[in-house]
Simulated scan of single mutants.
Amino acid sequence: MSNRPAGHAARSTVRPNSETSGHAPIRTFLYTADGMSIDSVYDPGAVVYETRPDTFQPHPRHLVFVIAHGFTGDVDRPHVRRVAGVLRGYGAVVTFSFRGHGRSGGRSTVGDREVLDLAAAVAHARGFGHARVVTVGFSMGGSVVLRHAALYAGAADAVVSVSAPARWYYRGTAPMRRLHWLVTRPEGRLVGRYGLRTRIHHREWDPVPLSPVAAVPQIAPAPLLIVHGDRDAYFPLDHPRMLAEAAGDHGELWVEPGMGHAEHAAGDALLSRIGAWATAAAG
């Protein structure tokens, strides 16, 4: 499973045109550079239009958030929809299901080729006319937004990584040991498929993808926000601190008191702060 970027190509079964008047969310399948079908939803939010609403062209300064969910999430999960609901107050929102999750095709590579899924979603977002794109990732998705920003220079105007690991193969907490069992053992992958609606690839990484902490220095000059809870049961605070140190002056670290892990632990107030930060940072 190579981490080599294979382009930004994405094809959509729905195109923005006059039929999208009324500003309803648009659900469609995207196609990644390696041919994977990715389920996505575009929500225009409170779009400010330059001309008539039926042209579906947002003001060039109106930003769009592309949300990269955590492992076992998907575009229909309530916690993903809640994140989208808060951020739509600050811009348009694209949500999507990573490969192997929900109605998307293929099997999860747990953060490796998922960078191609995010690249397709970002290209899709720009296809609606948005000049500013902010990627927001949680846990596995948090590692993916870091690698995407490093491998696709200029694709994101700002990056937010929430509850992300700094390094691969971490087994220092009980939840991460359970996750490794889920991913690496045949019986674990059965639990993933039938219990968690997540289809997991049986192959090991070859080559091992660029680690999040190695990716971070390559993100500059795009602004980077790292968010982590001080009660995260998966990744202790040395992970966000490593990321922040690697980011240097172009990164910002928020350690959230009392917060646990990823989307479930990110309250509406925190998401609103992220939305406000992104609006300023991507401007």
Score class of each variant (00 low, 15 high):
I200K: 09
W205G: 06
T95R: 15
E263Y: 05
L196I: 01
H79G: 00
H8L: 15
V110C: 10
D54F: 14
A120R: 02
R82Y: 04
A10T: 15
R27G: 11
S163P: 02
G35E: 13
R15S: 15
L271G: 02
P58K: 02
W277H: 04
R11I: 08
N3L: 12
T72F: 06
F65M: 09
G195P: 08
S108W: 02
E187Q: 15
P186I: 07
A84I: 06
T184W: 13
A125M: 06
D117M: 01
L146A: 11
R4F: 15
A164P: 02
R4N: 13
S139M: 05
F96H: 04
G258N: 06
S104Q: 04
V160S: 07
V115E: 06
H130Y: 15
Y42L: 12
G283I: 00
E252H: 13
T55D: 14
S97C: 01
L270F: 11
E50Y: 00
W168N: 10
S12Q: 12
G85P: 03
R171K: 14
H201C: 13
R167L: 05
A6T: 13
F138P: 04
G22L: 12
H250P: 01
I200N: 02
H261I: 09
A119M: 04
P60D: 01
A269Y: 03
G91C: 10
A158G: 08
A246H: 09
D112I: 06
L87N: 09
Y234I: 00
A233P: 13
R241N: 07
L87M: 08
I219E: 09
V66I: 08
A244N: 11
A233D: 12
R193S: 09
R203P: 01
Q218D: 10
T184P: 00
R203S: 15
F138I: 05
Y90I: 00
A269S: 15
G275V: 02
S18I: 14
A6E: 15
D249G: 05
S211L: 07
H69E: 10
A150W: 03
T55H: 11
G154P: 04
P212Y: 05
T109W: 02
L116N: 11
A215I: 05
L182Y: 02
T32S: 15
G106P: 04
Y31E: 15
E19W: 14
G85Y: 00
M242T: 14
W168I: 01
N3W: 14
N17C: 14
D43K: 03
E256Y: 00
A214F: 00
L270A: 04
R52Q: 14
P25M: 06
G154R: 10
P25L: 09
G248R: 11
P217W: 01
R199P: 07
M140H: 03
A149D: 01
L210A: 09
